[in-house]
């Protein structure tokens, strides 16, 4: 028994190590990609050089924030997807699918185009987080405690279309005539042309969200055996729900505020990693954070490598990867006993 546990723990270390190395490699690759070709060795030097040469400015002011945001937003999305799935005990829950992302986007649009962001830059992440909290609370009110696949997808469709239509209203009524095009482009999701200011704006909220979500890990493990068992093991369900709802809202809201909406990372990553952590929802959280960071960094490298006259939007690429994946999961859920319920 002791040896089984020991072997499991060794295996448990290999995965985060591997994922961590993957994130580090993709982070470095992301720093090396851009419209100006810079050799890898020079990128390394420019990263730590005093900021005077054009190379140092490109690497430190343009590529570094993009890579940091890629890793951080990806981690937020992967972690949030895994946590929502653990809480709802369903593999189809995901920030974009359940409407959290579009509601965060609505908050961000309101902050950007109605002047709140000019009053204080903090308005942008705060409005996005507010939108995300509202959507997640509504989601729980709609689906109840032990929702089936159908309930989650229906509630998600309802909340996403609500967020989407309110964004349309905001575009329609915006005082800025160029707003429509800008909002639509921003909604597609991108990490291009971001600055360190945006990193500093979003990072504290994302970090707070991660901490809350990681603290939910033991409770999510216990919840596998149902709400009553989780309670009898000493967990407060209301505290657990609050941790996940507010944690997801902070992480996703702050992410959406700086990157626009990027979907499906939170669906694909936990699904791929779940068998590798023995299906334990708690252990899936850190793995999904690393996996999400790796996948979004990879996708962001991808959009820079795809030849097109205008850069491919990141959210479009993740949707192209994620949507077929989502279809497959829905079909898979139908085949299981109980079906869509």
């Amino acid at each position: 028994m002791t040896t089984i546990v020991a072997t499991r723990e060794k295996a448990g270390l290999a995965l985060p190590l591997g994922l961590g190395l993957g994130v580090a490699g993709l982070f470095a690759l992301s720093l090396c990609l851009g419209s100006v070709p810079i050799p890898a060795a020079e990128v390394g030097r420019a990263l730590f050089a005093a900021e005077t040469s054009p190379t140092a400015i490109i690497v430190q002011d343009i590529r570094l924030p993009r890579a940091i945001l890629g890793a951080a937003v990806g981690a937020s999305l992967g972690l949030s997807g895994a946590a929502l799935q653990g809480l709802l005990r369903n593999p189809l829950a995901e920030p974009a699918i359940v409407g959290t992302s579009s509601s965060a986007a609505l908050g961000a649009v309101l902050a950007l185009y109605y002047g709140f962001a000019q009053i204080s830059p903090l308005a942008l992440p705060l409005f996005a987080i507010g939108g995300a909290i509202l959507a997640t609370v509504l989601l729980f009110a709609l689906v109840g405690r032990d929702p089936g696949v159908l309930a989650i997808i229906l509630a998600g469709v309802a909340l996403s279309s609500l967020g989407g239509s309110l964004i349309s209203v905001a575009i329609n009524l915006s005082p800025d005539p160029h707003a429509a095009l800008e909002i639509v482009f921003w909604m597609l999701g991108s990490l291009a042309e971001r600055s360190m200011d945006q990193v500093w704006l979003a990072a504290p909220f994302m970090a707070a969200g991660w901490l809350m979500l990681l603290r939910a890990a033991p409770g999510l493990d216990a919840l596998t055996l149902g709400e009553e068992t989780a309670q009898s093991l000493g967990f407060s369900l209301s505290r657990l729900r609050a941790l996940v709802v507010v944690g997801c809202a902070c992480a996703v809201g702050a992410g959406v505020a700086v990157s626009g909406s990027i979907g499906f990372i939170g669906l694909v990553v936990p699904h791929l990693l779940r068998p590798l952590v023995g299906h334990r929802p708690g252990r899936l959280l850190p793995a999904s954070a690393l996996g999400g960071a790796a996948l979004l960094l990879a996708a962001d490298c991808g959009v820079r490598l795809i030849p097109s006259h205008q850069e491919f939007k990141l959210g479009v690429l993740t949707a192209l990867i994620g949507a077929p994946f989502f279809l497959m999961l829905v079909l898979d859920a139908r085949r299981r006993p109980g079906g869509w319920r």
Partner: peptide, 11 residues
């Protein structure tokens, strides 16, 4: 509790 539910295929 009654029913002994389990949401994920854990070992």
């Amino acid at each position: 509790p009654q029913g002994a539910p389990c949401a994920w295929p854990m070992t």
